[in-house]
Lab assay of single mutants.
Amino acid sequence: QIFVKTLMGKTITLEVELSDTIDNVKAKIQDKEGIPPDQQRLIFAGKQLEDGRTLSDYNIQKESTLHLVL
């Protein structure tokens, strides 16, 4: 699992595989929060994550926290 922190300070827990693409992750956030993926920007280690890449491409591990910017 990974964590996604919103600017409102809310933390969302997502069940993911490290082979999941950023697209997949955004879809899971949409399922939980109702935010359309095209409005989501995910940040990790100061970098904006690109849709076609996977979590492992960015060296994101289990229990990592991503930041969601709208």
Rank of each mutant, 00 (worst) to 15 (best):
Q1D: 02
F3L: 06
F3S: 07
V4N: 00
V4F: 09
V4P: 01
V4R: 00
V4W: 01
K5G: 14
T6E: 09
L7K: 15
M8P: 15
M8V: 13
G9H: 08
G9N: 12
G9L: 06
G9R: 08
K10C: 05
T11M: 14
T11H: 10
T11C: 08
T11A: 11
I12V: 08
I12Q: 10
I12F: 10
L14N: 00
L14R: 00
L14H: 01
L14G: 00
L14D: 00
V16P: 07
V16D: 01
V16F: 08
V16I: 09
E17R: 09
E17G: 05
L18S: 02
L18F: 07
L18W: 03
L18K: 06
S19F: 04
S19N: 07
D20E: 04
D20Q: 06
T21F: 07
T21Q: 11
T21I: 06
I22Y: 02
I22A: 11
D23E: 03
D23G: 08
N24D: 10
V25C: 06
V25A: 06
K26H: 08
K26N: 04
A27K: 07
K28S: 12
I29Q: 01
I29H: 00
Q30E: 09
Q30S: 05
Q30R: 04
D31T: 05
K32F: 10
K32E: 10
K32W: 13
K32N: 10
K32M: 10
E33Q: 02
E33L: 01
E33D: 04
E33I: 02
G34C: 04
G34M: 06
G34I: 04
I35Y: 08
I35R: 05
P36E: 09
P36C: 04
D38G: 07
Q39Y: 04
Q39I: 13
Q40L: 07
R41K: 11
L42C: 02
L42N: 00
L42F: 11
I43N: 15
I43P: 01
I43H: 14
I43K: 15
I43S: 15
F44C: 10
F44Y: 02
F44K: 07
F44M: 13
F44I: 03
A45E: 15
A45K: 05
A45L: 14
G46D: 14
G46I: 04
K47D: 15
K47N: 15
Q48I: 03
L49N: 00
L49Y: 01
E50A: 07
E50L: 11
D51T: 03
D51V: 06
D51K: 03
G52N: 07
G52T: 04
G52D: 04
R53W: 02
R53E: 12
R53K: 05
T54L: 09
L55M: 02
L55R: 00
L55E: 01
L55W: 04
L55D: 00
S56A: 05
S56Y: 01
S56R: 03
S56G: 04
D57R: 11
D57A: 11
D57V: 10
Y58S: 13
Y58C: 14
N59M: 13
N59P: 13
I60F: 02
I60N: 03
I60M: 05
I60R: 01
Q61L: 06
Q61V: 12
K62D: 12
K62A: 09
K62R: 08
E63V: 05
E63G: 05
S64L: 08
S64H: 09
T65D: 15
T65E: 15
T65L: 14
T65Y: 07
H67N: 15
H67R: 05
L68V: 01
V69S: 04
V69L: 12
V69A: 12
L70Y: 11
L70V: 08
L70R: 02
